[in-house]
Amino acid sequence: MFIVHHFCILTILCTVPILNSTAVVDVLFPESDEDEPGLILPNIDGTPPCAKGSTFCENFDPYPSEKVKEILEKHKVNKEFFGVDELQDEFGARDDPDDKFVCPSVKSTIYPKVAINRKYKWKYIVNQKEQGYAQGVQVEICRKKNEPCDMVGAPNGFITTCKQKYINRHLLSLNSYGVLEQDTFQLPSSCDCSYKVDYRQWGNFTA
C-alpha cells in the first residue's frame, strides 16, 4: 500500500516551512459558536511540547479522535487513499552493522497526529489507524543533531556539523473548522554532515 497524494476533496497548498521550537503551545477550545462561528476543533496555538524540537508529534493528548472520525465518516473519505510508505532499497544498505556513518541516525515509520505546515502553522493530520485511516511516513532522524560529525582525521581549519534534512510531504489534514485539506508538511528525511571554514584557526595560520 502506498500513499496517494491527491484527494477528491477541496485542497489547499501552502508555502515556506519553518519550526519555532521555543514557543509554548496553548490548545484553545471554543467556548461558544458566538466566539468562533463554525469552529469545531481546538486551535493549536504555538509549538506543542511533544514536538521536542522536531516538526511533528505522534502523540498529542488533545487530539480530537472522535471528532476526526465523525468528519471522515460524514464525508465518506475513501480508505484506499491511505497507506504506509514502502522502505526504499537504498535505505536497506544502512542496516549493515559493519557500516560506519559520520552522522548516526535512526529510521522509523511515523504516524504524525500534528505537524507544522509551510505557513508556519501546526495542524491536525488525519491518522486514525484503528479505523483504517493511516498515513505512515518513513523518516530518518539525526541522533546527534547539530553536534560534530564522527570523523577520524578531520582536516584542521574546518568545523563539521551533523544537520537534520527535511522533505516536504503532502498529507491529508484538518483545519480548526473541520475542513479536510491536503497540505504540505516538513518531515525529517536524512542526517548529513556539513562543514565550513573555521576562520579562527585560519587566522592563526596566516598570522
Rank of each mutant, 00 (worst) to 15 (best):
1 M>E: 11
3 I>Y: 08
10 L>Q: 11
14 C>D: 14
16 V>F: 07
16 V>P: 01
21 S>M: 00
23 A>P: 01
27 V>Q: 03
30 P>Y: 03
36 E>F: 15
37 P>F: 08
39 L>R: 15
41 L>G: 06
51 A>N: 05
52 K>F: 05
53 G>E: 02
56 F>Q: 03
56 F>N: 05
56 F>E: 04
63 Y>L: 04
65 S>V: 11
67 K>W: 00
70 E>A: 10
71 I>Q: 06
75 H>S: 08
77 V>L: 15
81 F>H: 13
82 F>A: 08
85 D>L: 04
87 L>V: 14
88 Q>V: 14
92 G>L: 14
92 G>R: 15
94 R>F: 15
95 D>E: 11
96 D>A: 12
98 D>M: 03
102 V>E: 12
103 C>D: 04
108 S>K: 14
110 I>R: 02
114 V>Y: 03
115 A>K: 06
120 Y>A: 12
122 W>A: 03
134 A>V: 09
134 A>D: 11
138 Q>F: 02
139 V>I: 15
140 E>I: 08
145 K>S: 09
148 P>D: 07
150 D>A: 11
153 G>H: 07
154 A>R: 13
159 I>Q: 13
159 I>W: 01
160 T>S: 15
160 T>Y: 13
160 T>E: 06
162 C>T: 13
163 K>C: 10
163 K>D: 07
165 K>I: 03
167 I>R: 15
174 L>A: 04
177 Y>P: 00
178 G>K: 10
184 T>G: 02
187 L>M: 09
187 L>G: 06
193 C>L: 01
194 S>H: 05
196 K>L: 01
207 A>S: 14
